[in-house]
Design a binder for these strands. Structure first.
Length: 590
DNA sequence: TGCAGAATGACACATAAG
DNA sequence: CTTATGTGTCATTCTGCA
């Protein structure tokens, strides 16, 4: 285990805006606006009275400036809300005090417990809003035992509450402790570090301080990408968030490869894990994900290097990266090759050779009609502004030319092919057209994933046991199958019944010899159930999951809440389950 | 009732312009 | 270096239609 050579620069910017994440952690921030009198209202600006609404606005205002929500509550409570400048001053004073004395404990505050309890309630699955108070107190008392134990063990009440909320009511004490410990490590780093006003790429002093801190104080070793120069030839000092080109440790079509990396000790498999999500998540999200997943660096890969459509994704995994091989035959890499019939109609002023990311929605018929009308008015090349309009729309909706002046969205079976699934994979069985696009838009690109998983083939000639979380339409299963890796037992957890049916039907059609066990709720998969499964079928060799991205993806106008969003926070369940599997495996091998 | 169309106007990041 | 503008994104929600 090599560890960390000091001074080796990372391509990944670990150094920015960590404060924000921590705030999220402490307050379990999101959808709740807490006003000073301890009443929590859902959403912002939706409060029933004028007073409430203005209070929450002020609160929001300060939180948006970067102050911790509990601090804002406290200050507003103490000083009223008439004098905004005065409040700001107080907040600044408190913040300064806090950062110089990290151990100062903010007194328990009604806002805090309310906040925690309210989001707790969100998770408790009772949509009935009428009997709120009793429900809450009841559920509090049920967990009082665990809460008390945790507090007695020396953990802060709010930390304990957040952990219980995250891991669900059935979580064991052991799991809770584990969760809090990770949270504390993340928190400790950021509280103890000097506050950073603005993210600055390539700021060496800060970078070094942080390294020093990690190394000396925490005694931790963090893997660095030693070969980073490959990503960024011209300027070493510019630490970029995402690598350019986005090829991760290498792709079959490019000649640059990284064949060696050092994983942190805790990350080393088996079991192997493979986690996926959108590359362009809000700031800090990938840092958090990476810290939870044993400090493994994400591998950012754009699927445009594998097929004719872009798909920028980050993957965190502990697989070996030597001797990868691609699926055969290689899929077409340009629109032209993928859809030869479009060549005849493709206008010379449309320079696209690759499609954009395949999404969950497609362009409407009305839109294609508007485009036809716009283009057919001109003989030959339309004027610049029309070209721009048409190209913009074509890029936005991934339209292709299928006739004279005629564009069309891709058919679902064409999307299947592009993503590497067998034709008609999602067809029939009661799935509607829109659902089909939706399932496909949320799926893996099979060739990309298969390339990463290909290293397992030699390691497991007799097949593997797979735990597949958020399986969707079974991208991982299809990838392994296409690689020729036998599937012994697959435990597939997927919420959508339609998707489960798709996987089940694929399983039967491909004459799989193994066992397919499907479940619908990741939160219901606890240690006991896992142990039971592993007793019957043997240890899991691989844990795959791409947790929901709705709250991370840029196309979400409504609720891009980051990792703490309603769906995307299910990432913590991926971590919880993976960690359980690791613990169970480790215990058995003792 | 369920589906498809259309509007919505969030963000982070890259790049250009001042 | 700071500010303005452009670009792209595993989406959500409402409305009208059949």
């Amino acid at each position: 285990m090599g560890g960390d050579e000091s001074g080796v620069e990372s391509d990944f910017d670990w150094n920015t805006e960590d404060e924000l994440e921590i705030e999220n952690f402490q307050s379990s921030k999101p959808c709740l606006t807490v006003v000073p009198n301890g009443v929590a209202t859902a959403g912002s600006g939706e409060a029933s009275s004028f007073a409430g609404s203005s209070k929450s606005k002020l609160c929001d205002h300060f939180v948006a400036m970067g102050f911790a929500i509990e601090l804002v509550c406290k200050v507003i409570q103490e000083h009223g809300e008439e004098n905004e400048d005065k409040l700001l001053e107080e907040l600044l004073t408190y913040s300064a005090l806090e950062s110089s004395q990290p151990q100062v404990k903010i007194e328990p505050d009604p806002c805090l417990s309310d906040c925690a309890v309210s989001s707790w309630d969100d998770l408790s699955d009772s949509d009935d809003s009428s009997s709120n108070y009793e429900e809450i107190t009841k559920s509090v008392s049920v967990h009082d035992g665990k809460l008390m134990s945790l507090v007695k063990m020396g953990y802060k009440e709010e930390e304990a509450l957040i952990a219980i909320e995250r891991l669900g009511p059935k979580s064991s004490l052991e799991e809770l402790v584990d969760f809090i410990s990770v949270a504390q490590i993340v928190k400790a780093e950021d509280v103890l570090l000097p506050p950073e006003d603005t993210p600055r790429y390539g700021d060496h002093t800060k970078l070094k301080k942080k390294r020093y801190y990690e190394f000396e104080v925490l005694g931790r070793k963090r893997p660095r990408v030693h070969e980073k120069k490959i990503f960024n030839n011209e300027d070493d000092e510019e630490a970029l968030y995402l690598p350019k080109p986005m090829i991760g440790f290498g792709v079959p079509s490019e000649s640059t490869f990284i064949t060696h990396r050092t994983l942190p000790k805790e990350a080393v498999g088996p079991p192997y894990f493979y986690y996926e999500n959108v590359a362009l998540a809000p700031k800090g999200v990938w840092q958090t994900i990476s810290r939870f997943l044993y400090d493994v660096q994400p591998e950012f890969v754009d699927s445009k290097y594998f097929c004719a459509a872009a798909r920028k994704r980050g993957y965190i995994h502990n697989l070996p990266i030597e001797n990868r091989f691609p699926l055969m035959p290689p899929p077409p890499r340009t629109i032209n090759e993928a859809f030869p019939l479009t060549r005849k109609w493709w206008p010379s002023w449309d320079p696209r050779t690759k499609l954009n990311c395949l999404q969950t929605c497609i362009g409407s018929a009305k839109l294609t009609e508007r485009i036809r009308k716009a283009v057919e008015n001109y003989d030959g090349e339309p004027p610049q502004h029309v070209q721009k309009y048409v190209l913009d729309q074509c890029r936005k909706w991934n339209l292709v030319w299928v006739g004279r002046n005629k564009v069309a969205p891709l058919e679902a079976d064409e999307v299947e092919t592009l993503l590497g699934f067998p034709r008609n994979h999602t067809r029939g069985g009661g799935i509607s057209r829109t659902d089909r696009y939706k399932s496909l838009g949320n799926s893996f690109q099979v060739d990309t994933v298969a390339y990463h998983l290909s290293v397992l083939k030699d390691m497991y000639p007799n097949g593997i046991n797979l735990l597949s979380l958020f399986s969707g339409i079974g991208g991982a299963e299809v990838a392994l199958h296409r690689l020729g890796i036998p599937l012994k037992t697959v435990v597939s957890v997927e919420k959508s019944e339609v998707n489960r049916n798709i996987v089940r039907s694929w399983w039967e059609q491909t004459n799989q010899k193994g066992n397919l066990i499907d479940m619908d709720d990741v939160q219901a998969l606890d240690g006991e159930r896992l142990e039971q499964l592993m007793d019957i079928y043997g240890d899991f060799d691989l844990v795959v999951g791409g947790s929901p991205c709705n709250n991370l993806a840029g196309s979400n106008r409504v609720s891009r809440d980051g990792l703490e969003g309603k769906e995307s926070s299910l990432f913590y369940d991926y971590f919880r389950i993976l960690d359980l599997v690791k613990n169970i495996v480790a215990r058995k091998n003792e």
